[in-house]
Write a protein that binds this DNA or RNA. Structure first.
Length: 311
DNA sequence: CTCCAGGGGC
DNA sequence: GCCCCTGGAG
């Protein structure tokens, strides 16, 4: 083990408790979060591989209604399963083929009993490291820390973990309370899904990690999977419109809170940072749309800039 | 030959 | 995210 462990805050316990408490207090209800049936979990994971969760709910319900168990699916005709996939717009029907094959494996090679460790689960067709760990966690509470792009983004921002797979792996592992993969992985992924998306919603989502979060402290919310250049045109005109709509929603915003909501690649000292944002705001101010207020509340000379919509 | 990282395709 | 193929390393 290297210095990488230093990325984890010393009060890990508090960090863990805060997240789990936040998750248990309130979270999105997906049907696969209230089952512990490995087959049902696997179906949800395979469907989720590159389909928006909203669409998956209906497909998942329909699929399980049609083939309630792995044994049922194993007996189905491959063509019917692929047909289902297509008719529900689930994308690459290779995954339907894999799922069918995995069901056959479970019934014929595992005597109908799903294996319960990540290593064994990986033997199933279409089940790689990620899915194996997810099923082990959610069905058997027997997995390791999940590391996907959402988790990487959270760790990168919160604990300043370098953009390096081994580092992410190590920190994620160190953070997870042993034997709690089910609730933990659900909670971390929920965090990445509702509070720490590409555009962060720290306060709005009541992020439980704000007091430890490096990005929250510095205002730099860039992340590995956040495009440096907005894919569409980042024109000044669009940016102005965004400022107004954000201020409409949040009333009053400090520069570093506003910045990341305007551009995901906002970084206080970067090309699109405070300087850029102040220029934008002063234009809007000149046009009578926004009030910009300078203040030195701490009296430390560190003047804070706050913007709000002009009423 | 076996292992594995890297890239493309689905 | 997973599979498969390739190509280099041992």
């Amino acid at each position: 083990m290297s210095e990488l462990a230093g990325e984890v805050p010393d009060d890990v316990e508090a960090v863990r408790d805060a997240l789990i408490e936040w998750y248990e207090d309130d979270h999105r209800e997906f049907p696969w979060r209230v089952t512990e049936d490995p087959y049902e979990i696997l179906v949800s994971e395979v469907m989720s591989q590159q389909t928006q969760l909203g669409r998956v709910v209906e497909a998942w319900n329909d699929f399980l209604e049609r083939w309630p168990t792995a044994a049922d699916l194993a007996e189905a005709d491959r063509a019917d399963v692929v047909g289902f996939w297509t008719s529900h717009s689930l994308g690459y029907n290779n995954r339907a083929k894999y799922l069918h094959e995995a069901a056959r494996q479970v019934t014929e090679e595992y005597d109908g009993e799903f294996p319960d460790t990540p290593d064994e689960l990986q033997e199933l067709m279409g089940v790689g490291p990620y899915t194996a760990n997810a099923v082990a966690s959610f069905a058997f509470n027997n997995g390791d820390a999940v590391v996907d792009t959402n988790v990487k983004r959270v760790l990168y921002r919160a604990f300043d973990v370098p953009d390096d797979d081994a580092a992410f792996e190590q920190v994620a592992q160190a953070l997870m309370p042993a034997g709690e993969s089910r609730v933990w992985n659900n909670a971390v992924m929920e965090l990445g899904g509702v509070a720490c998306e590409k555009t962060p919603a720290c306060d709005g989502a009541q992020c439980p990690w704000r007091e430890w979060c490096h990005a929250y402290e510095t205002g730099d919310f860039t992340a590995p999977d956040v495009p440096t250049q907005p894919s569409f045109e980042g024109s000044r005109r669009q940016m102005r419109g965004k400022v107004v709509s954000v201020l409409k929603e949040y009333d009053k915003q400090a520069l570093d809170d506003l910045g990341p909501r305007i551009r995901v690649d906002y970084a206080p000292d970067g090309e699109y940072g405070r300087e850029w944002l102040r220029g934008l705001l002063s234009d809007l101010s000149d046009d009578g749309l926004v009030d910009v207020e300078e203040r030195d509340s701490e009296g430390d000379g560190e003047g804070e800039v706050v913007a709000r919509l002009r009423r």
